[in-house]
Design a protein around this nucleic acid. Sequence first.
DNA 1: AGATTGACTGAATTGTAATTCAGCTATATA
DNA 2: TATATAGCTGAATTACAATTCAGTCAATCT
Lengths: 206, 206
Amino acid sequence: MRKITKHSERMTKKQEKKRKAIIEAAIETFAKKGFHRAKISEIAKQARVADGTVYLYFKNKDELLMKAFEHLFEDKLKSITTRVNQEDSPAARLDKFFDLHIELFTENPHIAKFMAVELRQSPEFYERYPDYWPLQGYLNFLQKLCDDAVEAGVIRPMKTQALTYIIFGTVDFFLTLWSIHRDTVSLEDLKKQAIDIIRYGTRIQS
Amino acid sequence: MRKITKHSERMTKKQEKKRKAIIEAAIETFAKKGFHRAKISEIAKQARVADGTVYLYFKNKDELLMKAFEHLFEDKLKSITTRVNQEDSPAARLDKFFDLHIELFTENPHIAKFMAVELRQSPEFYERYPDYWPLQGYLNFLQKLCDDAVEAGVIRPMKTQALTYIIFGTVDFFLTLWSIHRDTVSLEDLKKQAIDIIRYGTRIQS
DNA sequence: AGATTGACTGAATTGTAATTCAGCTATATA
DNA sequence: TATATAGCTGAATTACAATTCAGTCAATCT
């Protein structure tokens, strides 16, 4: 397969833009159709490139999916971590995390769908790409927030891994339901309840 | 398409058995490969029937997936509800629910994988089959448990919908991680922590 | 301007697997 | 036992879509 940028080794602005267009078209299309029903031709069309061009930028469809996740986490979710870190107390950071995480998905429904659906690939997929688990960094960040909160005495001592999974799992399930049954679920409402329960469940004084 | 049991309108024992064999082969194969990579021919082989036979029992692959979920919920998860209802206090019923739900998946890893991965179909899939949401009955049951617990004064008054989603979402995320990274997650451990946090978070006295 | 080279195009190729269906088999019926 | 029927089979058909690649285009160099 021919590669782009054989000489320069660095992509031009134009190419970066094209690559990004393909990835963003991919996220939208995967979100709408699901990985397997999404056609490369459809992604290419949406990105305004030829089918073949996709293969100049990505080895195959699998890689496109993985790079799309990578892009998401670098581009969008990293900004969450930045903004969370601006809060000055551990408790405020945890709250902020909830807010921003849900805000991101509320404002970009197709990203929510993409995450909810495409994170779950078959066990075989994960076997084929053992290093592929795009959530790890994000979960680590969340767990760090929890650890800090314990350290600071804001929440009672506990194994924070479970708490991390409760928080992420809860939000993930909300978003899954919401992306399937948009109308019958009020995210804002649920969020309040969930924060409340988790806050009660983790605070020092019983 | 020809239909079976044109006259009798009721399946024979033999046919019921064959239908069940196909569904169970489907669950295992979907769990291992994921819906789209699972081949009908593979399912047929595992069920010891011819490829064409699958189509005498199910309209197409989509329907096979949906009926497989239906079967799961009727056959397995119904037994959970029965056993949960044997407990005599609302609090005990909630605890029992956790236990049995996780036990089911620990003892049948392929069911866990199937649930974790195949529940998430693309939005388009859910649009095509608007009545398909196999979890509903199960979520209703769980919410009923929560409502009873509130009613009985075991947990503090709250909108139980959020609690339901927290519980289910948490367990679902545990199982997802566990089915992907079997080794690095101890379900038993996580379960204890999660129950603890949720119990703290919902109890009357603060 | 002409030549060279890297990038792009999209029709053709290729591979895969869902679905069909013409015939076969087992069972029931007369 | 012969005949009819329901159910089953699996090779052939069909549909689909990932990937390739021969040809075109556009930018850069001489």
